[in-house]
C-alpha cells in the first residue's frame, strides 16, 4: 500500500505518493520533503508579508539580500526562461498582477521600468539578489510549484526513496520510479474522452490554463495568466501541457506558452500539447516529439 502525505503550500495542496518496504523511513523522508516545500513556500510566497519575496520587494531600490541557494538558482532559471521565451515568461509581474486585480484590490498600472527584468540583479559570487527600482516585485507563481517539487524529489532521492509521485495542486506533477510491476505513473489531464493521459517515469508534467482563475479591474475581467508584453490577458492557447525532466521547467514553460510564447521556442528537451479554443489538443510544433498519449 503506497503511503500518502500532504500539506498545504503555495495556495494549493502538495501531495506525495511513496512506495517502499520501510514505512517509517518513507514517512520520515516524505515529511522532510514536505518540510522543504513549506520552507520554500514561506520564502517564495507572493501573499505572505514575511516571505523573502516580500522582503525583496520592500528593499527594492535599496540594498542586496543574500538568499538561499534554492532561491538563487530559481531566479537564475527565471531570467533564462524569460529570455528563452522571448519575454512571455516574466518573473517580475507582481505589480502588473496587482493592477489587474489578481492580488487583492486592483491598483494603478505599474511603471514600465518596474517590469524590466534587467532590474532583477543577481550576484552569483555572493549569492545575493537585489531589485533595482522601487515598485518592483517578484511573482514566482508561474514556476514555484515546479521548483518546490524538484527540491522535494531531491530530498526523497537523498534518502533513497526512489518510487514516488509528487504533485502540487495536481497541475504540476513529478514522477520518480513507478510502483513495482508498473511501467509508469499514469496521469490524466482533465477528464472526458479526449483528455490527454500521460505516462510519467523519471519525468515531470505541468499544465496551465488561461482562465483557471479570473481577476477583475477597471479594464474588465481576465484570466490569471497575463501576456507580460501587453499587460493583458494571454492570447495564447486555452491550455498547455509540458513534459520534461524538471518540474520547474515544465511549470514555467506551460505558463509561457499560454501567455503567448511561440511553440517554436520550446527547448528540445521539453515536449508540449496545446489546447485550442474548441478544446482539442495538438502537439506544440509540427515534428516535435510528443508525450505518450492514450485518449
Amino acid at each position: 500500500m503506497p503511503l500518502r502525505l500532504a500539506c498545504p503550500a503555495m495556495g494549493t495542496r502538495f501531495e506525495l505518493v511513496l512506495a517502499g518496504q520501510r514505512e517509517a523511513h518513507l514517512r520520515a523522508a516524505g515529511e522532510a520533503a514536505l518540510a522543504e516545500v513549506r520552507t520554500l513556500h514561506s520564502a517564495w510566497s507572493a501573499f505572505a508579508r514575511d516571505s523573502l519575496v516580500a522582503h525583496l520587494a520592500r528593499e527594492a531600490g535599496g540594498g542586496w539580500t543574500r538568499v538561499d541557494p534554492e532561491t538563487f538558482e530559481l531566479l537564475e532559471r527565471c531570467v533564462a526562461l524569460h529570455r528563452a521565451s522571448d519575454g512571455a515568461f516574466h518573473p517580475l509581474l507582481a505589480p502588473l498582477l496587482t493592477a489587474a486585480g489578481l492580488r487583492g484590490a486592483a491598483s494603478s498600472p505599474p511603471s514600465p521600468a518596474s517590469l524590466e527584468v534587467s532590474g532583477l540583479q543577481l550576484d552569483a559570487e555572493r549569492g545575493a539578489v537585489r531589485l533595482a527600482k522601487p515598485g518592483m516585485g517578484l511573482d514566482l507563481g508561474a514556476i514555484a510549484k515546479g521548483a518546490a517539487l524538484d527540491a522535494a524529489a531531491a530530498i526523497l532521492e537523498e534518502e533513497e526513496v526512489t518510487c514516488a509521485l509528487l504533485h502540487g495542486g495536481t497541475s504540476t506533477v513529478l514522477a520518480l520510479d513507478p510502483p513495482p510491476g508498473r511501467a509508469s505513473w499514469r496521469v490524466a489531464v482533465g477528464s472526458g474522452p479526449t483528455a490527454p493521459v500521460l505516462d510519467l517515469r523519471r519525468s515531470a508534467m505541468s499544465v496551465s490554463a488561461a482562465r483557471s482563475r479570473v481577476g477583475t479591474s477597471e479594464a474588465g475581467s481576465q484570466g490569471h495568466i497575463l501576456d507580460p508584453r501587453t499587460g493583458r490577458g494571454a492570447a495564447g492557447p486555452q491550455a498547455a501541457v509540458v513534459t520534461g525532466a524538471r518540474a520547474a521547467d515544465c511549470d514555467g514553460w506551460s505558463t509561457a506558452l499560454v501567455a503567448g510564447a511561440s511553440p517554436a521556442l520550446l527547448p528540445n528537451a521539453l515536449e508540449a500539447l496545446l489546447q485550442d479554443s474548441e478544446g482539442h489538443w495538438h502537439p506544440a510544433a509540427a515534428g516535435a516529439a510528443q508525450p505518450t498519449i492514450h485518449s
Binding site: 517509517a24 514517512r27 520520515a28 522532510a32 533513497e160
Partner: peptide, 9 residues
C-alpha cells in the same frame, strides 16, 4: 501533524 522522525539510513 508530524512524526518528528528525521530520515537517516
Amino acid at each position: 501533524k508530524n512524526s518528528w522522525q528525521t530520515p537517516a539510513s
